[in-house]
Design a protein around this nucleic acid. Structure first.
Ligand code: FES
Ligand code: FES
Lengths: 165, 165
DNA sequence: CTCAATCCCGACCGTTAAGGTCTGGATTGT
DNA sequence: ACAATCCAGACCTTAACGGTCGGGATTGAG
């Protein structure tokens, strides 16, 4: 249930990476772009993800106005805005499209039993809540999660995604 | 993104239906079962959904302890508990399995780049938030979608879901 | 006892989308 | 001129989803 695609995961990782690269902004360059340009290949190698796939994701993000791109020898991608002004919601939406939980959104608008479905409305509210939740998360929120223990690898904390209840 | 499967949708619809049938409980039968038994076929016809598919969904729900079943001529399904004690989360979980947004849960435990993934932890928190959100929704919340008691709002539309990163 | 109405279980199948690859072309700094 | 990039599609493979089928096990009714 409620599955976030790997593409969106990759996209968020890449954005976080870019935000980190541009992290210590010397506050001496108020114009131009927000962060340094990084090539798709570099980012892909940093995270060991398929380079060509990430390339396409970054292109999508660029088309959505979240990234700016620059071709050429020292080209690459940079954040179009400060990391604090990019929400997880718009990233996910840009990559995965406007799909939502109802599963009743076919290409024809709505599913054929939309007139009999009695839980459509409450589900829409859940949908909105999740949207709000995601909209409240900014890229800048991702960069300082577990940064305090140098040396030790993360993910040592045992139960990764145990999903237990 | 974040797509709820149609099966879960159907399951919720069926549960709501059962809850409605048993709605005006005369409070004179504190024992036995909570609601009247309805056959899978009846429920399927009420909503115009594939009967055989719904049958399987109800079986799953019964196995999960959410419904009780009774074979025989006047058999059918009934809620195993009052509708106010069944959450949307456990329904979805019973039907769609313990899948969650991370998309990094393969059958082998975790995805192979779990050691490089830097956003796993923040994502897990989002996950938990959604889980909490869904856990706060009860079947009884579905039956009075509009114009209900002003005292007991569904707490869904309020957007009071905050996430701490 | 017999029978019909049910629930139960597993196998099966078609469609779709996700994840990933490949090829060719358009920019642009050096 | 050339290499490093970005860009835009056309593919491919696999797995999950949505749905179907048939056979078997219960159980109330007549
Ligand atoms: S089944 Fe389509 S709106 Fe619920
Ligand atoms: S990509 Fe697997 S944990 Fe994020």
């Amino acid at each position: 249930m409620l599955r976030l695609t790997k593409k969106a995961d990759y996209g968020l990782m890449a954005l976080k990476y870019l935000a980190e690269q541009a992290g210590p902004v010397p506050a001496a360059e108020p114009d131009a772009h927000v962060s340094l340009a990084q090539s798709a290949k570099d980012i892909a190698e940093a995270y060991h993800i398929p380079p060509q796939l990430l390339a396409k994701i970054l292109q999508t993000l660029a088309k959505a106005g979240i990234l700016v791109s620059h071709a050429g020898t020292n080209g690459g991608y940079a954040l179009a805005r400060p990391a604090s002004q990019i929400t997880a919601f718009e990233v996910i939406r840009a990559i995965d499209g406007p799909l939502f939980i109802t599963s009743c959104i076919t290409i024809h608008g709505a599913c054929d039993l939309t007139s009999h479905c009695t839980i459509k409305e409450p589900l829409r509210k859940v949908n909105d809540s999740i949207k709000d939740l995601l909209s409240g998360i900014r890229i800048s929120d991702l960069i300082e999660t577990s940064e305090s223990r140098p040396g030790t690898e993360t993910a040592v904390g045992g139960g990764l995604i145990s999903i237990a209840l």
